[in-house]
Structure formats: C-alpha cells, structure tokens
Nucleic acid binder design. Structure first.
Length: 854
RNA sequence: GCGGACGUGGCGAAAUCGGUAGACGCAACGGACUUAAAAUCCGUUUUCCGUAUGGAAGUGUGGGUUCGAGUCCCACCGUCCGCACCA
C-alpha cells in the first residue's frame, strides 16, 4: 500500500480541474445562482495563515453550494493600491507597480497551490487601468448625480517630509520617518456625500438579517443618529461677527446644571480671538499638534483655555457662563461648541474640577439629594430620576421624556430648535499620494473644477516617477499635471490627488460579475449574479469597508450601474477570527526584545530554546504579525504536508468566528488523520465485500452513523460550524476503521469522501478514483441522508432528583409524558433516592429530562 | 476615552429552545506489535476523597431568577477588535 503523497497528488487534481474548467462561473437562467466572496487580499508579498483560513471557508461554501446544484460565482482579485507599495518604492528603489505585480504573481502561485475553487478567468487588480478607469467613470457619474462634494478637511502634516501622514504613520505625535512634530493642516479635499444617506443606511440595517448582530450594532452606533437641541448662548459683550455661541446637546434636560461653554480650538470664535490673544493662539497651536484621530483626541488630557468671555444662560437670565476653548471639542460634530454640565458628564466633571468651575445637579436618583463628588451621575435615559427646579416644570420622569419635553418647551419659547444629527461624517477620499486611482477632474482658471471626458478615461498613472523627493510625484510630473480643459480647451491642471483605497474595495464585488466590460458593470451580469450571497472577511472591516460598500451600492444604483434590488450588496456576512501563534523573544540591548520566528525555536514541554541552547521567553499568543515574527508561512506547510492538511487544520477545532492558534502539533495531527483516511480507503478498495454482512446489526449501525453524519454535517456547513463538521468526520472515520469489510463500509467511505470534498478536495478526488468511481468528485452531487435510517426507537433520559442527576432511564421514543412519569417513579435507583419521601412535583420534558422534586 | 465582542479540563473545543457539562481532536499516561525505534492499533484521562461500589465540587469572580443556569439578569475582573489617511 502506498503512502498518500500530497505533493504529487495535489498538482495532478488542480490541473484536472483547470482542464475541465470546473470552477468557471457560467450564467444559467435555469439554475439558481450562488455568489460567494471573500474579502480580497492586499498583495503584501506572501499569503499568511489568516488568508488560508479565510479563503478555505469561502471555498468550503463554494464547493458545497456547487454540489447542491447552484451556479457558483467564486472570484478572486487584488486590493492593490495603497501605502506599502510607496514605502517599498522609497526603501528599495522599486516602482510601486512593479513591486505590486511581482507580489501578485507570488501570491497567485500560493493561492493555486491551495486548490481553491476559484474562477481565475475573472481575476483583476484594482491597480489595473482597466479597473480604475471604470472607477473614474463611476466618480464622474457620482459627481453628476450630486454625490460628490469639495470642502476643507484637516490632515496630519509632516513639516520636514512636506507630506500628509496617515494616522498609522503618526507615532506619539511625530512623523514615523522624519521624527518631526506633526501639525494639523487644512486642505481642500474631495468627499462622497455619505452623510446624506445616513438615515437610509441606518434604517436598512434592519434588512440585513444574515449579518452578525454585533456588526449591525457597530454600524448603527457609527452612524450615530441622535435627537438633541441646538441653542444659541448670547455673548454678554458681543464681538464683531459673533453675538452668540451656538451649542448642540443631546441632553438638554441638564441645562440647569450648565456651568461653562466649551468651543473647539478650530471654532470660528476661537480663531477670531486668536488674532488678539497670543496665549490663546499658543494654546490652539498646541491643541493642533494632537493627532487627527478621534482616539488621540479622546485619550489626550482634557485641557482648556479661559477666553475671558461670558455668555448668558438662555433660561436663567441672571446667570452667566464662562467661555472656554477645550481641546476635547470636535469641530466636525454638531456645531463645534458644547455647554458643559459637570454633574452629568464625567469629562465635563473632570474639566470643572481641574479649572474650579461650579458643579450643580440637574437631577438626582429618586429619594437622594446629595450632589455629585468625583463621579458624574449618568444613569441610562430610560431610568426615572428627580429633576431639580426644572424650568419647564418637569419633576419625576425618565431622562428620555425630560429631553423631549425640554426640546418642546425651548422650541415653544423660541430659545432653540430640536435637531437630529448624525455622528457619520462625509467620506473624505482625497489622498496626496501617487499609488492610487487618479481623481478624474481638471482645474481650469476659466471654467473652475470640471470632470474629465469619459472618452479620455482611464486617466493613467504615469510610470516615470521617482520617490527621491518628499511629497506626491504627480504634483511635479508635467505631462500628467498639465492638460487641456475638457470644457474650454484652454491650458489647465489635472487634479493630482488620488482616491482612498477604500473606494477601490467598495465596488469590486460588482465588477467581478463582468470584469472585462467596457462600462463599470454589465446589466445582464449584475442582474443575474448580484447580490453577493455570502461575504466572508475579518471583523476589522465591520464598520468602514462594509459601510462604504453599502453606500457605493446605493450610489451605483442611482447612477444606473446596479439593478434596483441590489442596494444592499451582501445578503449574508460572516466575520472570521484571526490566526494566532505564540511569540518567542530574547532580551536585546537596552531593555528591548529580539523576536524569533517559530522555525528558529525548539519548543519543549518545559519551555523553548534557540538552536544554540540559549533560553527563549515564550510570550503571549497573538495575531500573526511580521513585527513579532510569530508567523508560519503557508508555503512551508503546503510543501511539508500539502494543501489539504493546511485546509483541514484551519477548519478544525476552533469555531470560525473565533481566533485559532496555529500549533505545529495540530498541523501534524491533521496530516496524520488524512493519512489514516487514505489507508482506510485503500483497505476498502482491496476488500471483497460480502453482501450478506449488510444484514447484521453492526452494518446497520454504521449505516445509521453514515446517514446521521450527512444530515448533521450539512446543517453544520449551513451554520458555518466547520469545526463541528470536521469533528463529525473524525467520528465517522473512527467507525469505518472499526468496521469489517461490507457494502456498508464501502458506502460509508464513498459518502465520507464526498463530505470531505469541500475541505480536502485533493484527497477526496484521489479516494474517489481509487475506489473506481467515474468523473470528478468535485462535480459529484452532495449526498442526501436516507431519513429511514435516522429514526430512533429508544432514547435514554436522565432523571434528576432535586436538580441532581441520579439515574438514567431508557424509554421508547414515542412514550407519553405519563408513561415516562410512571417509569421514572418505578425505577429502582430513583426509589432508593426517594426513600419514602413525598414527591412534591414531577417535571418531564419529553425527550430531554425528568426532574423529581421532593 | 468611546463603541463592539469574548472568557468552559493541561490545550483547541462541544453542549440547536434554560434540561445528563466536557462530543470530537491535541497533549499526557498505560498496553499491543517490534531485536529496537518510528509508524500503527487498543485503553485511560475535569478536579478532589475512596481499593472499589460510590460521593463531593466544578463553565473568569461575586450576587440573583428558576424544579433546573455554561446558557437569562445585575455588578466586577481579564483579554481582544474598531475609532474615519493601514488594509
């Protein structure tokens, strides 16, 4: 008997599938379609185990649905624009395009070695002019449909490198390359008007029934619809152009406790005062050094600057409040100004204590009167509280009712207006970088900003660029930058900003339905294939990528590129966990750690050492990352064990939504199991099955298990419970191993091969052929369980006495409640425990449990 | 800081509706085969007490609801993800 040789077998079947065109998606109106898509990868240079897991999940679904008779679309492409290519260009003097396409070639090879059922004829990269040219056409259509805006936005500016930095390029307020202190800078930028669709995107979350609840919640919170009050506070002494400060609050019921006004450093009033007040100017400059990310702003120590101005309380005319500039007030949200109510907001309270501002409760918990000390009183809005001297006469009610009543009262008095606001901001898409999709507009002195003509698309990135001077090479590339105005024909300048790479990934799913079309999409193809039936990817994309994709589908629908019913592009979403690994390190110079990759480390029960015997500290199990070197290269695993082993491992044990830890022992175990299956298949192929053995009880119980496995595994795959599906295959393998040669055993083996096909397709093909079956198992239908083998006549029920399990009871499956009660009380063990005590209550849950309460 | 999740044996986990906690796998231990090893096969394996029949405890911690809680409720602890220019 030969050992199963994955290295020889796998390429053979991959070629057979290619030759037969098994995975080419074909439109067939007589067949139901199924579109399964995994989030496409960034071509970083090598596949990692996270990819293997993600794409194997998709492959299991794709192969399973194909076996169920669906016309399956399962494409692959590359999210190919982005910063790493420019970093590589700077560090290694390679062109971003060359670097990217080389990486794609490497990774495509790794993908193919995994035996995924992908229709490679549809492959594209977002940096192909064929793709991004269509994206430019979409941009122009969106401009014409009023979905694009131009306005200012704040960016991280590195004054040494003279370039805009991404948030991740800012480390402790300094540029990662130059080390210069980062400044905030305002630039005029392009935006998609996603906030106009905020309400629609929020409401439609309810229709996303097959999305994880947590993702829907995160999206809803991100959009952040709130009803509040916008109210002006009159300045005690008006300034030219400023006679009041407009504040927005979601808690107008706390207006009594207002003790100060805080405005953003970028608020027009703050900017006006800056000119006269050098100290304020210095404070504001300092504030602008904080990063632009919300996280950085929120985490920064809360600081303020007293402007010396005061405003009148809108209700209590005798009260005045000081106006402060606060580094924690966002200019982007609401009106850039808030009133501080320290008693009912922890941040305001910290601020008030720090600057010695008054603290007054607007309400207390029922029955209490003590004012707040160091902890703000912030009960849920649904809770009933006692209001203190509320101006609208509110006494005891819930926060929500008080908010509504206050808004009504303020509106009636003309003191403010109820406003619905969203946290969601417009989507800024301008990037001052080379390696992205050029924005297809032209700046003309005579005509202003005009879109490029579609017949001139694609606006291609020029190849002849270098990265030896800081900034965007497009800015000083004469033949790219200088152009003629499509409107008047005069000399003009091309926009040199490129698009956010999130734009590229916001419509690729639609492009896969007709990747070579000369328009962004093709009507018949999108009508047939859209929507994506199952989308699979990392939970880190739960908000931005998915929200932008939902926006884009709507935008494409409005501009005629998607059918009416395709506004929600992903019918079902699955978010998978990460692949993790232990970390290994030794002490480095000055307290730092030197990280070691798993293949340099010898791991034992007690600990770990390097090859030279020096001790290695075993660190926490974290997401595989290059910086910590805790990566296992799928290439090595495939070379050592074969693709099926890697696929089997990542699908077994851990539930797919949870993180999985890669261990060498686990990989080895997976390989051993597949070898065992092959040995059993070989045994079956050599045996002459005696038909008379099929009559016996042993054969019948194997058949029962086989058909039970079909049924359970089918529902496990439908539920994305791949780890449970794998466990059932282990169980069936064990049963086949124990069985004697019989037609039942042969049936079990053939059915198991079919059930294994989605996970280990190469091994399944080899077994199929070895057992003399015709055709490819990849094209064989999914097995159907024989229902008559699934019925059970007798079940075992546990019997509890006062909630503790004391006995087991074997009862006919169709026994009535009364019969079970009778049998339970008659049971000898039960009698022993009852010991003559009175039965107070008898609970029988049919098919489940009996509980006797004494 | 804000938003979202997760926590069960030595390890990865299972437990579909509130109904036998630990299926299945890894590791470990014992045995068979072998001159030996590897490979393979069989068995044991939540913890504690007990020779055993058996008993007690047990799902991050502390409370609560229930005949019955890993599952529901409240509080706390720990870990992870996102925060708009990383993808």
């Amino acid at each position: 008997m030969s050992r199963y040789n994955a290295q020889a077998v796998e390429p053979k079947w991959q070629k057979a599938w290619d030759d037969a065109g098994v995975f080419e998606a074909r439109r067939n109106p007589d067949q139901p379609k199924y579109y399964v898509l995994e989030m496409f990868p960034y071509p970083s240079g090598a596949l990692h185990m996270g990819h293997v897991r993600n794409y194997t999940m998709g492959d299991v679904v794709a192969r399973y649905k194909a076996a169920q008779g669906f016309a399956v679309l399962h494409p692959m492409g590359w999210d190919a624009f982005g910063l790493p290519a420019e970093n590589a260009a700077m560090e290694r003097k390679v062109h971003p395009g060359d670097w990217t396409y080389q990486n794609i070639d490497t990774m495509r090879g790794q993908f193919k070695a995994l035996g995924l059922s992908i229709d490679w004829s549809r492959e594209f990269a977002t940096c192909d002019p064929e793709y991004y040219g269509q994206q430019q056409a979409l941009f122009i259509d969106m401009m014409n449909a009023g979905l694009v805006a131009r306005k200012t936005a704040v960016v991280n500016w590195d004054p040494v490198d003279m370039t805009v930095l991404a948030n991740e390029q800012v480390e402790n307020g300094r540029g990662w390359r130059s080390g210069a202190v980062v400044e905030r800078k305002e630039l005029t930028q392009w935006f998609f008007r996603i906030s106009d669709m905020a309400d629609e995107l929020l409401d439609a979350i309810d229709t996303l029934e097959d999305w994880p609840e947590k993702v829907r919640l995160m999206q809803a919170n991100w959009i952040g619809k709130s009803r509040g009050l916008e109210l002006p506070f009159q300045l005690s002494t008006p300034l030219p152009g400023h006679d009041s400060v407009l504040c927005y609050t979601t808690r107008p019921d706390t207006l009594r406790g207002a003790s100060f006004i805080a405005i953003s450093p970028d608020h027009p009033l703050s900017r006006a005062l800056e000119a006269e007040n050098a100290d304020l100017a210095a404070f504001n400059t300092e504030c602008r050094r904080t990063g632009t990310s919300e996280e950085a702003l929120e985490k920064a120590e809360k600081r303020g600057f007293d402007t010396g101005l005061t405003v009148k309380h809108p209700v209590f005319a005798d009260q005045t409040l000081p106006v402060w500039v606060g580094n924690f007030v966002l200019m982007d949200y609401g009106s850039g100004a808030v009133f501080g109510c320290p008693a009912h907001d922890q941040r305001d309270l910290d601020f008030a204590r720090k600057y010695d501002l008054p603290v007054a409760n607007a309400f207390h918990m029922p029955g209490e009167t003590a004012d707040v000390g160091t902890e703000a009183l912030v009960p849920p809005k649904t809770e009933t509280v006692d209001y203190v001297d509320h101006f609208a006469g509110i006494t005891t009610t819930t926060g929500q009712e008080a908010i509504d009543a206050t808004i009504d009262w303020m509106e009636a008095k003309g003191l403010g207006t109820g406003q619905t606001k969203f946290r969601l901001r417009d989507w800024g898409v301008s990037r001052q970088r080379y390696w992205g999709c050029p924005i297809p507009v032209i700046h003309c002195d005579a005509c202003g900003v005009v879109p490029e003509r579609k017949e001139n698309l694609p606006i291609e990135l020029p190849k002849d660029v270098t990265f030896d001077r800081p900034g965007n090479p497009l800015d000083w590339h004469p033949t790219f930058r200088d152009c003629t105005c499509p409107s008047c024909g005069g000399a003009a300048r091309r926009e040199t900003d490129t698009m956010d790479t999130f734009v590229d990934s916001s419509w690729y799913y639609a492009r896969f339905t007709a990747p070579r079309a000369t328009t962004p999409t093709e009507a018949d193809d999108v009508a047939y294939w859209m929507n994506v039936d199952q989308y699979i990817g990392g939970v880190e994309h739960a908000i931005l990528h998915l929200l932008y994709s939902r926006f884009f589908a709507r935008a494409m629908q409005r501009t005629g590129h998607l059918p009416k019913d395709a506004v929600e592009p992903f019918n079902a979403l699955f978010t998978q966990g990460m692949v993790t690994h232990e970390t290994y390190s030794t002490p480095g110079p000055s307290g730092s750690r030197i990280w070691h990759s798993p293949d340099q480390v010898i791991r034992t029960e007690e600990g770990a050492t390097l090859a030279n015997g020096s001790a290695v500290e075993v660190g926490p199990i974290i997401k595989m990352s290059k910086s910590k070197k805790n990566v296992v290269d799928p290439k090595d695993i495939v070379a050592q064990y074969g693709a099926d082993t890697a696929r089997w491992f990542v699908m077994s044990d851990s539930p797919p939504e949870r993180d999985v830890e890669w261990t060498a022992a686990g990989a080895d175990a997976a390989w051993k199991h597949l070898q065992r299956v092959w040995r059993l298949a070989d045994e079956v192929s050599q045996s002459a099955d005696d038909p008379s053995t099929s009559e016996g009880e042993e054969a019948l119980s194997l058949r029962r298990l086989t058909h039970r496995t079909i049924k359970d595994m089918t529902s496990d795959i439908e539920d994305f419970a791949f780890n449970k599906a794998v466990a059932r295959l282990y169980e069936l393998t064990g049963a086949i191993a124990k069985a004697k040669p019989s037609p039942a055993r042969r049936e079990a083996m053939l059915i198991m091969a079919r059930l294994m096909t989605p996970v280990t397709p190469h091994l399944a093909e080899e077994i199929w052929q070895h057992l003399g079956q015709e055709g490819l198992i990849s094209q064989a239908p999914w097995p159907v369980a024989d229902e008559s083998l699934l019925v059970v006549s007798e079940i075992v029920m546990p019997v509890q006495i006062n909630g503790k399990r004391r006995a087991e009871l074997s009862v006919p499956a169709d026994a009535t409640k009364e019969q079970v009660e009778e049998m339970a009380l008659a049971d000898a063990t039960v009698q022993k425990y009852l010991d003559g005590q009175t039965v107070r209550k008898l609970i029988v849950v049919p098919g489940r449990i009996v509980n006797v309460v004494v």
